[in-house]
Computed example of a mutant assay.
Amino acid sequence: MTAPVRVLVCDDQALIRTGFATIIDAQPDLEVVGECGDGRAAVDLAVRLQPDVVVMDVRMPVLDGIEATRLLAGEGVARPVKVLVVTTFNLDEYVYEALRAGASGFLLKDAPASQLLQGIRTVAGGAALLAPEVTRQLVGRYAARVRPAENAPAEVPLTPRELEVLLLMADGLSNSEIAATLVISHETVKTYVSRILTKLDLRDRVQAVVYAYRRGLVT
């Protein structure tokens, strides 16, 4: 049998933390290995327990979720941990900062339990997750903040079709939606996404979307 996905839950509200843990632990393929109420404790526990995924709130005492995410999954971290940010605050600023910090996903707390569980599985599997409304917000109001400097190289090492897939990813489309838009199979889209990540040396779809913004490919 495949070992269950090990999850650390970090939220400063005990009721929410317990609720998440109860929902997650009820799944045969998921296991809560720890709980905590602030970002500093999340970093310490993650180092000690080595979870597969950290479910991270944003607004917390001692150390907020964004900084905790940066310490666990940011650039230069020797053994990055996958972080799924889950918050009540549907604000562009949090989305932008969470992605910059290295989060692999971003969900709202009012999402259905099934979406949280699928989000954990998606992130654990090495993919990225953004709620569609969150992705479209990022494409909109904060796109200008992540565009490159004027002297950034314009050439992108992708084929025309790969570039087309990247732009659809940046527009918040799922693999199924990209397949329907381009009239190709779902498996073909997965192949294109894999090639894009490999060619651009990116970790996941989130980094691919941010790359598109930074290179000025999103208008």
Rank of each mutant, 00 (worst) to 15 (best):
Y142P: 00
G126M: 04
D12Q: 04
R195E: 05
I196C: 02
E75L: 12
R195N: 13
L173I: 01
Y213A: 10
K82R: 15
Y142W: 00
A152G: 01
R145Q: 11
K82F: 07
M56H: 03
L182P: 03
C36Y: 12
A131L: 08
L117N: 13
A103L: 08
A212G: 06
E35D: 10
P112I: 12
A128T: 03
Y192W: 08
G172E: 07
G126N: 03
A14N: 08
A68I: 03
V165L: 04
N90W: 06
L30F: 03
V218R: 11
P28F: 08
A111V: 12
G216Y: 10
P157G: 08
A68Y: 07
D171P: 00
R195H: 11
R59F: 10
A180P: 01
L200T: 00
I66N: 05
L107F: 12
Y192S: 08
G34M: 13
D92V: 14
R121S: 09
I184H: 03
Y94E: 05
M60I: 09
A212T: 05
V139P: 00
P153S: 09
S185N: 00
S194A: 14
D12E: 04
A73H: 00
T191A: 10
R59P: 00
T181A: 12
V62N: 10
R6M: 04
D92G: 15
D204K: 04
M1E: 12
C36I: 11
K199Q: 13
Q118F: 00
I16M: 12
K109E: 06
G126Y: 02
R147H: 09
E67G: 01
P157N: 02
A26W: 01
Q115S: 08
A101I: 10
S114G: 09
D64N: 14
R17Q: 09
D44G: 04
P4A: 12
P112A: 12
I178Q: 01
P28A: 10
L30P: 03
A101K: 11
V77F: 07
E35R: 14
K190D: 13
L166Q: 14
Q207E: 15
Q207L: 05
L166F: 06
L173E: 03
I24S: 09
M1F: 03
A111I: 10
E31R: 14
A21Y: 08
Q118D: 14
V209G: 01
H186F: 15
R214N: 14
V206P: 01
M60Q: 12
V53I: 05
E93D: 14
A68C: 06
L166D: 14
T2H: 09
D201T: 13
D38V: 08
D12F: 08
V165Q: 04
V218Q: 04
T188R: 11
K199R: 15
D11M: 07
